[in-house]
Structures are given as C-alpha cells and as structure tokens.
Design a protein around this nucleic acid. Structure first.
Lengths: 343, 343
DNA sequence: GAAATTAGTGAAAACGTTTTCATTAAGTCA
DNA sequence: TGACTTAATGAAAACGTTTTCACTAATTTC
C-alpha cells in the first residue's frame, strides 16, 4: 500500500504538496499538480482514511455512525437504505450498529462511534429523555440527527413522521367504518413514536365521543412478534370482543395475524386491522392490509441530508422535520357489524 | 476527550505503561496497574480506535467490512444480523455497504474498506471469476470471507448453502406432485448461487427424464420485482402454460405473485409456486408459500466466525462451509391437474 | 559471588496524514 | 526603486496510539 511519502518521492515534491493536491488546495501550480497526479496513478495511491481521520479536523473523516434497533425490521432497513444512498453519493462510509432497544448496547455503540471519530451519528434514540447522547457525543461536539423518534427537547436535529397524526387517521378510519370497540397494540412510552401514535389513537376516540377503554390498550416489545401474539390473544378474549385492532408496527402485526388466524377469525369480517408501516408483504397476504404508510426511505434520506448540512454549517439552528404518514385503505378493514349481530 | 498522555500524567507513569495496561500486557506490576486504571476511570478515558488502528498491527483494529447487495432484502438483512451479533460479542464494529450488484460500487467500497484498515471483509462476491477481490484486498493481506456466494476457486473462505441441492429438492418436490411443465425464474450465471440453483433444477428434470425446455427458463435481475413481474407474465403466456414455477429468490417472488394475481390465477389450483428463501410474510399470504428455507442468520454467524478464526490464525487453510437448505411444504404447491383437464 | 536472566518501566520512533509556519521567487504598488 | 503582497513550495509538528529499544533493579543461575 503506497503512502504519501512514496508519491512525494516519485513526483519529486514534498509530502505537503501531495497532500495539497489530494485536498485540492488551490495553492499548487498546474504542472506540479499534473506530476503528482501521475505519480498517484502510477502507484495506485489511495489515501488512508484512518490517518486522515486521526490528523484531519472534525467533520471531514467521511464516516457516519448509524444505530438502529434492528436491521431485520423492514422499516429500519428502508431508513438505512435511504441514509446509505445519500452517504454513498457523498463518499461517506457507514458504520451500522443494532441496539436491540437495549440502552446498554446503545451506550456501547455510542462510545465506539466516538472512538472511531465518526463525523456524526444518526439514530432513533431509545429514550426520549435520556442524557446518554449528551454524555457520549454532544459534549464532544459530535453532531447527532434523530430519525423516526426524537428527543423531548428540540435542540437536536430530527426527522420523524407525524406519529400523532398517523395514529389519529388510522383510528378515525376505523371509527368512520362504525367501529367503537377499537383496540391498540402499542409499546413503551419511552419511545416517542409509539407514545405519539397512542396519543393519536386516544385523541381520535375522544374527538368522536368514544370512551378510551384501558382494557383495549396493550403494550408490547416492538421487536417481538411472539409477545404481540400473546397480547392479541388476550385482547380477543376481552368481552365484548373488539371489532378492530390498530397495531403500531409491522413486526407486532405478524404476531397478531398469527393469533387471529389461530382463532379462526376472518379479516375483515370478524375483525378489522390497521397496521402501522407499509411493507412489501402487506399486499400479498390473504386480505391485503390497510396500513399507515411511512416514508421510511425518505426519512433516512432527509436525516442524512440534515447531517450533511450540519457538517457544512455546525452553527445552524436545530431543525425538526416532520413528514406525513398516509392511510392506504386495502381489504383488512370493513364496516363494523351491527352490534346486535355481534356475538 | 482525554488521551493516553493525560492518563499517564494523572497516574504518574509513562504513556507506554498506560498502553500496556490497556492491552493488558503482563509486564506491569499490580499496583501501577491499579493506579492507571483509577486514572482512566477518573478521566473517563476511552482509547481512540482510530489511533489504535493507525499504529497497531494488522487484525487488531476491531473493524469489519461488510458489502451486501441490498439491505432491504430480508434475506441479506438476516445475514447481516448474524454477522453483527458475532461482531458485537467480540467488540467489533461493522461498516456496512450496499453494492446493488454493481461492480463499480463494489470496487469503490472495497477500496474504502481497505483505506479504513478494516481487519477483514465479508461479502457475497458479485463475480465468481473476478479478480477485484485480489486487487483490492487479498494482495494486501486483508482477509476475505465469502458468504452466500463463493468464488470459483476454493482458496478463499466461504460459507454458502448448498444451492444445487436447494434447486434440486424444490423441483423434485414439484415433480413428485406430477408437474412436468416447470418453469424457473433465475438470474445471471455470474452469481454462483443462482447458477447452482438453476443447475439443481435442470438436474432434477433430467434425473426424472423430463425435458429441459429453454422457454421455461427466464433470468432476471434478482433485485427487481418489476422485472420478475414481466418475466412471469411472459412465462404464463407460454403454451402449454407451465403448471409450476420455481422462483429463485424472495424479491422476484413478490413480482411473480403480483403477475399471477393480476391474471386471476389461483395458487395452487392453477399454478404451483416454490420460492427460494423463507420470509416472515411467506406464511401470511393467501396460500402460505412452499419454500426452500436457507439458514441466513446462521450463514452470517458462521461467516463472522470464519473471519475471527482467520484473524486468529492467518495461516490456516481456506475452508468452504456448506449449509443445508430445507424444503418447507405449505399451501402453494399441489398435485398437477390431469393434463386432459388442463386448458 | 559473578554472570545471566527477569520484572518493571520509560524515551523515542513509528503509523500516514494534515496543518502550521517559514522561505523563496515573482509580481504589484506608489 | 524599495516596500509589500502573492504564489508556490517545503520542513517540521501534530494527531493518539503501539512498538522497539534501552535501562535499572531485583532475582536466579552456576
């Protein structure tokens, strides 16, 4: 692996000059530049990004840290892809980490990323009130962009979808179809996104003078379809049985579908379903799912762009981007049965 | 961010000594070690992985490169997850790159990864005969582990599933059900995996004295469900219409399903389907899919372990691990109609 | 009891860059 | 013409580690 020194020797200039042509500083004459470039080509020289990162100043190491809950979740892999595409266009490499919603893992990776001198970190923060981001990154001047979830304070860049609205339109759709017993499979309030979706759910009920029934609100680990399976079984035993379920992410929906199938309930005849997230398989199942579609790829793209802007202008004010979710009506939701016919 | 120097000062020892306790060299007395560790804790010292990588010797930088065709493909995200879990346990960070099956992108990322001084690279090589891996990595002594696909030569570690067998059992299953007009949606021969699956397909036909009909063999971009959609339409217009299709990956299957739905054909009554890959949604669709299941996560795990072994013993002979695919019969395959009743 | 080994430590070089500072030559100003 | 800027270049320091080498004191070996 050839080095700057070797190139300098071959081109008969100093390493400083070679460095200058690499970073195309203007302070170098046309013909020395030419000579140096020829030498670089001859030696197949590629600068060491490691050395560049060690010596170079903040924000130029072309390395981006990315911590997500689980790459196996289609929703997150879409976000990742959006980020990665922008990164590639700007010659950034991406370090990917899976947090599994585990704060210890998140902490570990935050430390690693700092230690790797990344130019910045994009992540859906696990705790909206936590201070781990400050301790590990912000105090050291490392830019952070939140994606999908945001922090309680607004001093950190974030791009999210309007989760409150997402929950609201999902449930409004069900209410418009005549449903009154609407259950929700939600998740911990520590996640801003689930918190917001659930608030949207409750708001829609209230706005339509429907009672918020605690029995119909369950919370599970968003990464566990098994747990969603159990929670769904529990929900379906509530009397009177809910006529619709709003499930707040795709993974939990898989578990819910399993439970519903197992109990031989028909979608949408016996029970209507709205899933949060659109997925490739949502249209391929028995009753194609009515979903709240989130622009996941777009969200990733925007987050990466926010990051680049932050690098370009570290002083700019934090911005909160909110994208719009969209209701896509398919076949998993239908009019509520007349209550008298209900079992 | 505190440095070695600061720790050394605080602990009143040389930087050398501090370095030694970090890398727990045994050559340091119990009480100086204690003193140094206390200083590190006080200063919240975290070594710079960048500096470590620059100075340190090969294979200790705890950084692993990973190039995959597309993280949005469930199959690959499973592999990635397997790799990442092993990496995490061993305190490795992972740089993730999407090649999009584009050799230029692959090349770019290989250069980046070398430039980042990764300890090694795991990837499904795009070309089984290419020499880009040699030029970018192997010549520089950077370990490579192939996953999912392998190189033509066996001098590089690889972990794959037995794709020939996968194709063979898929088609044998169809033949056993009485199918004779069996189509395949395959992909370019440059990919060892698709090549092998197709060979398995042809072998199964031959072993059962069935003719290999070129009209029933189509090849598409494995990343494009749209293309698979078109190819499927074409296949379904062949006369006599094939009674079964073997689709060699999950993404292409989505396109195929769309085409089949659009033509109002019933699975499995009108056409039987076997998909390569098991996916979370395979069981959730109208007729749960009969699939060839690949141990993707396991494959990732094994690849990462192979990598670690290579780091531990750079001299060991290359190994080729072959995992077994499994036929999972569900509802998308059934007995072929009597030919006389066929259209 | 002298020689050889070992344990414990530190100074300085090295890794491959970028940055700072200095220097020279050439051009500009008035 | 002399003072001043500008363009082009290089020497050396710096980044934060690990590694090599050297040194001292203590221990072991014969």
């Amino acid at each position: 692996m050839s080095t700057l020194k070797e190139v300098a020797k071959k081109a008969e200039v100093s390493v400083t000059t070679v460095s200058r042509v690499i970073n195309n500083s203007n302070k170098v004459s046309a013909d020395t530049r030419e000579r140096v470039q020829r030498a670089m080509r001859k030696l197949e020289y590629k600068p060491s990004r490691v050395a560049q990162r060690l010596r170079g100043s903040k924000g130029r190491s072309k390395l981006l840290g990315l911590i997500i809950p689980d790459i196996q979740n289609q929703f997150y892999s879409n976000i990742v892809r959006g980020i990665e595409d922008v990164a590639y266009k700007n010659k950034y490499a991406v370090i990917l980490c899976n947090s599994d919603e585990n704060p210890n893992k998140e902490r570990f990776y935050l430390d690693v990323l700092r230690s790797e001198s990344v130019d910045g970190v994009i992540l859906p923060p696990i705790h909206q009130y936590g201070k781990v981001l400050d301790e590990c990154l912000i105090e050291y001047g490392i830019p952070v962009v939140c994606v999908d979830r945001k922090l309680a304070r607004e001093s950190v860049d974030a791009v999210v979808v309007n989760n409150h609205k997402g929950g609201y339109i999902a449930v409004s759709h069900l209410i418009n179809l005549g449903h009154e017993q609407i259950a929700i499979i939600s998740s911990s309030h520590q996640f801003s996104s689930f918190d917001d979706r659930q608030n949207g759910y409750e708001q829609a009920l209230k706005d339509n003078k429907l009672e918020v029934n605690e029995d119909l609100i369950v919370e599970g680990d968003p990464r566990s379809s098994e747990q969603a399976y159990k929670l769904t079984k529990k929900l379906l035993e509530v009397s009177p049985r809910p006529s619709a379920i709003f499930i707040t992410n795709n993974l939990m929906t898989l578990g819910a579908l399993e439970a519903i199938n197992e109990m031989n309930l028909k979608i949408p005849e016996d029970i209507s379903i709205v899933m949060y997230d659109d997925t490739p398989w949502a249209t391929a199942i028995t009753s194609p799912l009515t979903v709240i579609s989130q622009p996941a790829y777009e969200m990733g793209r925007r987050a990466a762009e926010l990051f680049l802007q932050r690098i370009a202008d570290p002083g700019r004010a934090a911005v909160q981007v909110s994208l719009e979710p969209k209701l896509i009506v398919r076949k998993s939701t239908s009019f509520a049965r007349d209550k008298n016919n209900g079992q």
